[in-house]
Amino acid sequence: MKLRMAVLSHLVNLRDIPDLQGIEIGADSVSLGAMVTQHELIAHAGLGEAVPLLREAALQIADSQVRYLGTLGGNVANGDPDNDMPGLMQCLDATYQVTGPDDLRQIQARDFYESAYFTARADDEILTRLMVPIPAAGTGYAYEKQKRKIGDYASAAAAVLVGKGFASIAMTNLADVPVWSAEAGVALAAGDREGAVSAALAAIDPQEDMRGPVEFKRHVAGVVPRRAIDRALSRVAG
């Protein structure tokens, strides 16, 4: 619509719906309204402690002005493969709550993305909230993103959580959907870094763009998660 490629008969400002707002920190999960902005994710002190990975990733999205307006819902709901938050949510094993005319349903972030711009959300549903489990205390985390400059999407990005007997890895902008691999998590949990990276790479299908040809992307898709893993491991505490 902004780019004058679409004409719509109605425009609904979701910002006026209170249920879509707010960050609530529970005992073992946080509930994030779909209209929570990237700026709020960064500024919220309690959230930074509960799920520091969210803040670290949000700081790597766009620039201050865009983060003041960019919402979590807008970032994850439409299935844009460039966006950082979908992979992040898969890494965190978030649950999306969507609401339609009749009912409300929960969809796992890991089941949500079908292909570029196609998701499990029906046309008459909107995303209302996201539930993110709080990682166990001492869990190491890292968000690594290679980009050409601030304001650019990832050439390759990786979100990593790693704790005692547990790990999760997701990657961004390396296929038409975010790439989360169960095997990669299992391998990393068992201390097998290289096994984790090869499992994660098995699922990628990068496309050539101005960031570089496919072989370049395949290569950095190996480098970036290794760095994320190393940084996450260095942060494991207790």
Binding site: K2, L11, N13, R15, H39, S64, Q65, V66, Y68, L69
Partner: peptide, 15 residues
């Protein structure tokens, strides 16, 4: 109280 790029804001959002 927020810095925004006013090309990302519909005037309806600035109500």
């Amino acid at each position: 109280g927020r810095s925004v790029k006013s090309c990302t804001v519909f005037v309806a959002q600035a109500q």
